[in-house]
């Protein structure tokens, strides 16, 4: 089962395709959205996330924003979405971002 995911940032659309699951960092920690999820709007914090499609898993670091389950699609509005190679790389980038904001 799959649904359509759109990831939008101020710099343009990053992702628009059919996916099985999307995972992101929410207010209360990491969560995932599967097909058939009830309509929902939630806030996202800067953190690692992943998109699982039929062709494999892609890792991202998502910026602050929102995720909206708008049946049957899912739309994410985030400040930025940076593609990385692995979970470790995503965590590293998240930490760097947190350090950069302190100035």
């Amino acid at each position: 089962m799959s649904y359509n995911l759109r990831i939008l940032t101020p710099e343009g659309p990053i992702f628009d395709d059919t996916v099985d699951t999307v995972q992101a960092t929410g207010y209360k920690g990491s969560f995932g959205v599967l097909t058939g999820h009830a309509p929902m709007i939630t806030a996202l914090l800067v953190g690692p996330g992943k998109v699982i499609t039929s062709s494999g898993t892609q890792w991202y670091v998502f910026g602050e924003g929102t995720l909206e389950v708008r049946k049957p699609d899912v739309v994410m509005l985030v400040d930025f979405a940076e593609k990385v190679d692995s979970y470790e790389a995503a965590k590293k980038l998240t930490a760097e971002d947190a350090a950069g904001d302190k100035d």
Binding site: P10, G26, Y27, K28, A38, P39, M40, I41, T42, A43, E64, G65, T66, L77, D79
Partner: peptide
């Protein structure tokens, strides 16, 4: 009739600064 986390008000305080940005 929609789940929201955190509550709607908090969500708004999250969205409005996006417009400033």
């Amino acid at each position: 009739d929609i789940l929201s986390e955190p509550g709607m008000e908090q969500l708004l305080s999250f969205l409005v600064p996006r417009l400033v940005s």
